[in-house]
């Protein structure tokens, strides 16, 4: 029982985790991309479409990653090369993604999907209580954990990671040191887009292997909130994602058991939880001040 609950929590947490870890890198480089929802839903529709037409879920995953990255570069071009307002442009990306995915996906509504199978590691997966949770999951679950570890290592233990953080904390100084601010931000934005695309593919290839319009249902926004919740620290994103996974699974289980609360109220729980968590985190001004990348959302035009 415990183990199956843990596994369902992981399936709810993994897409949030993947999208949030990508956005964390973007924000660490000083760019606020509010288009996560749009990139995610584009990933979901391409992942589904390619998997169904080719019969290979892996090709779907790959396509979703590429489309997510390509889509994020639209945002990158506007905000980095044309220095448009990042908040407005991120919103535009979300609106565009929801519109385009709805249009592309119309052909896929009601089609049976292709599910990405699970990979169980022999012996280890037989460990009582946690074996199946940790070692008999879908491949994207493993990738999500590797991503967190990789991003954490990259940001805090490599020179390139230090450079990326310096761009996010003070782009003028970084520029004066000869660091190519814009190029690094482009790379970070593309990475974030790839992650959001992958997270979308998780939804349409693992979580519910079918295409439903707007199937991301605000998860991209919750991922954005997770980055704030985690105060821009990779491992805290992992903790946050599983916390949210637990909340959303908790409400599903409550609906199944038939708790006498209207289902709409239970469905609203993850959204309300996001608001509550954001309030709790932002109350502590010093904590947020210390960790927020200082140039987050600020436009950069190299002086000539």
């Amino acid at each position: 029982m415990l183990e199956s609950v843990l596994i369902t929590i992981a399936t709810a947490a993994t897409p949030l985790l993947i999208a949030a870890i990508g956005e964390l890198v973007v924000e660490r480089s000083g760019v606020l991309n509010l288009g996560v929802e749009g990139m995610m839903v584009m990933g979901a529709v391409t992942g589904f479409g390619v998997a169904v037409t080719t019969g290979s879920p892996w090709l779907g995953v790959l396509a979703a990653i590429l489309v997510g990255a390509a889509f994020s570069l639209l945002f990158g071009f506007l905000t980095l090369s044309l220095v448009t307002n990042q908040v407005a442009t991120g919103l535009a990306l979300t609106l565009l993604g929801l519109g385009v995915s709805g249009m592309i996906g119309e052909a896929f509504i009601g089609m049976p999907g292709v599910k990405l199978g699970t990979i169980s590691i022999p012996v280890l997966s037989e460990i009582p209580y946690v074996g199946r949770f940790l070692f008999a999951q879908d491949p994207l679950f493993y990738i999500s954990i590797v991503l967190v570890a990789g991003v954490s290592y990259f940001l805090f233990f490599t020179r390139a990671g230090l450079t990326l953080r310096s761009v996010g904390d003070n782009h003028d100084s970084a520029h004066a040191l000869g660091i190519r601010v814009i190029a690094i931000r482009y790379a970070a934005v593309a990475f974030g887009g790839a992650c959001a695309g992958l997270a979308g593919a998780y939804l349409s290839l693992v979580y519910t292997p079918q295409w439903i319009e707007n199937m991301t249902a605000g998860r991209g926004w919750i991922a954005l909130a997770l980055v704030v919740f985690a105060s821009w620290r990779p491992w805290r994103v992992l903790a946050g994602a599983y916390l949210f996974g637990a909340v959303s699974i908790g409400q599903l289980h409550a609906q199944v058991i038939g708790v006498s609360i209207p289902s709409q109220f239970l469905t609203a729980l993850p959204y309300l939880a996001t608001v509550v968590v954001l309030v709790l985190i932002s109350r502590n001004r010093r904590l947020t001040m210390v960790n927020t990348p200082a140039c987050l959302g600020r436009p950069f035009v190299p002086a000539r």
Partner: peptide, 10 residues
């Protein structure tokens, strides 16, 4: 139409 509107904002 939705895709169209999104493009317009861009």
């Amino acid at each position: 139409a939705r895709a169209f509107q999104g493009m317009l904002l861009f």
